[in-house]
């Protein structure tokens, strides 16, 4: 590797607000090189906003975000896969090619890279099809192929397996593992606790815009530090916080009748 790592990424008291509403609150943390981090938390906790802040798509309203190893070229060395895959209205092949062309990879160099990532993601046979025709799961794989082609140092993934069926989830996890073993630092969100156990070296727990916990994965599942995290891992958070539950525990039979 000629280029040095842009990691670690350090957040110092980062907050993000829209219209006076604080959606990410005083987050301080550090992402070291060489591990994978899974960001978890209930819907609306601010996970997607958090990833966007880290990736640089949003600017913090206050606080500091710093790539400590950087020489200024941080944007070129990181990539993101969004919760909803965005497909360019072009062929599958051209979708990957476009990402490479933006990065300034020459045409001659693009071809073998595209072929390789499409093959590795099992999309070779779709290469001439408009990307918008792919199924949701295939689109998610194409989004992964597209960032894989860029060989980023850091890859942000926002719920890459949400609404995928188990085989597709398995496929996507394998792709993520392959990208990781090629040397990419993974930072991703997930709702699937099984997946967190399979993929995470480190877990971050977000709740209502606050970072409540950043610990090693085993420790998180053995004895989470905050009681909210414990409730979340046991799937109890639903009742924990609803002030007016739609279905108070115990009356589900009456509702279904």
């Amino acid at each position: 590797m000629v280029d040095s790592s842009i990691l670690p990424l350090e957040l110092d008291n980062v907050s993000y607000e829209i219209d006076g509403k604080r959606l990410v609150k005083n987050v301080s943390c550090c992402f070291e090189a060489g591990r994978s981090t899974l960001v978890i938390g209930p819907n609306g906790a601010g996970k997607s906003l958090f990833l966007r802040l880290c990736h640089g798509l949003l600017q913090p309203s206050s606080g500091l975000l710093r790539w400590r190893g950087s020489d200024g070229q941080t944007g070129q060395r990181q990539a993101m896969v969004f919760q909803r895959p965005v497909m360019l209205r072009r062929s599958v092949w051209a979708n990957v090619g476009y990402a490479l062309s933006v990065k300034g990879v020459s045409r001659a160099e693009r071809e073998p890279i595209i072929n390789r990532v499409l093959q590795c993601t099992g999309l070779s046979r779709f290469e001439d099809i408009p990307a918008t025709r792919l199924s949701f799961g295939e689109q998610q794989r194409l989004a992964l192929a597209r960032v894989w082609a860029l060989s980023p140092q850091v890859l942000f993934l926002d719920e890459p397996t949400a609404s995928l069926d188990p085989p597709a989830t398995h496929q996507v996890e394998q792709i993520i593992t392959a990208i990781q073993s090629a040397g990419t630092r993974i930072i991703m969100t997930s709702h699937d606790l099984g997946q967190v156990q399979r993929l995470a070296d480190e877990v971050m727990f977000l709740h209502r815009g606050r970072l409540l916990e950043q610990t090693a994965a085993e420790q998180f599942f053995d004895c989470p530090q905050s009681d909210l995290a414990r409730a979340f891992t046991r799937g109890e958070l639903l009742w924990w916080h609803r002030k007016n539950p739609l279905h108070p525990p115990g009356i589900s039979k009456e509702i279904s009748r």
Binding site: R89, R90, A94, D128
Partner: peptide, 20 residues
């Protein structure tokens, strides 16, 4: 019918343009 407008590789970044 959008195929009318779409080259096979689509979007002008298609592979036909590649010499190899």
């Amino acid at each position: 019918q959008d195929r009318l407008l779409r080259s096979k590789r689509g979007g002008g970044y298609g592979r036909q343009q590649y010499p190899a």
